[in-house]
Design a protein around this nucleic acid. Sequence first.
DNA 1: TCTGGGGTCCTAGGACCC
DNA 2: TCTGGGGTCCTAGGACCC
Length: 367
Amino acid sequence: MENRIILHIDMDYFFAQCEEREHPEIKGKPVVICVYSGRGGDSGAVSTSNYEARKFGIKAGIPISRAKKMNPEAVFLPVNKELYQDISDEVMEILRGFSQNIEQESVDEAFLDITGNVPDFEAAKELAAKIKNEIRSKTKLSCSVGVGPNKLIAKIASDFQKPDALTIVRPEEILQFLSPLKITDLIGVGKKTGERLNELGVRTIGDLSGMSAQDLIHEFGQAKGIWLKQASQGIDDSPVVGREGTEQIGRIITLKEDTIDPAIIRDAINVLSEEVYGKLAVRKLGFKSVTFVAISADFKTHTRNHTLETTAKDLDVIKTTANKLAQTFLSEHQVLLRRIGVRVANLKQEKGQMTLGEFNKKEIEYI
DNA sequence: TCTGGGGTCCTAGGACCC
DNA sequence: TCTGGGGTCCTAGGACCC
């Protein structure tokens, strides 16, 4: 685990950049990719936006209606997942050409362990530049790359300057690099942890590294305390590992209106179950647990889970179990529901499964 | 200004077994 | 009447990420 060289590749404003590639006429304009909730009008949230839109304050997570007020002239497009998945496949294929030791982190991000491929960080920098060039020439898209001695540093580095950036952090530069950054720049420190740390007078990663492990453990518990202490010093031993497959598959939707009507909820569960089943079936996966997810009108998330005796694979099991769980939940809670979801987990490949290559091909056909 | 949808990982309490 | 400790699995909730 010592002296590794890790790359993190992060596609710039991915969904919006994909749309710019497909529709060159929108390039240069503010572009906003939207997830509409189906409640009519502009109900929904922004998934991502390009840099022109960000100048107006339009960023991921804000309501579409608010974004429209910030800039009514911007180009608003619905998400086109099939397009982004196809382009993602192109990018990942290119990356695989540079190193077999790859971990795809999301649709637009990946880690590469190039320890065995290059002698030092200077060579790593050249390789990273080469990767950026090849992605640009083959897909016409820009990305930002971070190079560091571990995943944590590589990821923070890829985020450090954007877009179209290349940032190298050598082992001896870690503390200098991290110390002035905000604590929320540390991957894994979000809003809640950030606020609690602020209350302790901690604003930068440097401040955090000045806290004792004991105090952090006292405040955040054993695992998180130790992790915070190590992360603040740029220590991260997690390996780059190819993820074999997903651990869970779910679908969640926003209801047309808030409701406690069991018939409406049942109908929605049946549709969601079928969609989850569809995803399982192409991958030839069985499941051992089913979860019903309910998000109430006040945006609280509730879950009801059931673990089966043995691995199942039938649509009917998903439907029946999810509906039973929903009934239990509804008998306990008289709250209006805004969104509901169905999720299966403890996934297991069925016998006579496909190879990974066959699986990838099949999935492309399915999409 | 009214809030999407896909995930991962961790925690705490209880059941159950040895 | 009082009575251990460890391990594993399950459930519900929460933080976080893209």
